[in-house]
Amino acid sequence: MSGLDEVYINGTMEHRLPQNLNISFAYVEGESLLMGINDIAVSSGSACTSATLEPSYVLKALGTGDDLAHSSIRFGLGRFNTDAEVDYVADRVIETVSRLRELSPLYEMAKEGIDLKSVKWAAE
């Protein structure tokens, strides 16, 4: 994933199951990302089964903001995954995140150096 910026790993890498990777892709909505990689079965940090789209209580407990929690994906490797599958998944995720960010005005603004927290939105 080093081909992407604004990527955050959730939880320590030092004391961790080797099979697990949980990462947040800033400026990307988790559900859109999951739709974009719909030939890959992974989980997002949003509890999409509930009526309200609640971000993961585990990620919130780490101090992860709602936006980053919603943009998180959990990859869980298993005995039957192959190197070729890992390469394929990485390529597809990078490609999809890049495409979604190209469509994101927020990502564009952030890249232009605008502090999104200081923006006064019309709806507020």
Partner: peptide, 16 residues
């Protein structure tokens, strides 16, 4: 690239 789709990479949920 030699992989069969869909790919299952959600082994914390369950395993085959």
């Amino acid at each position: 690239g030699g992989v069969t789709l869909p790919i299952y990479m959600d082994n914390h949920a369950t395993t085959p």
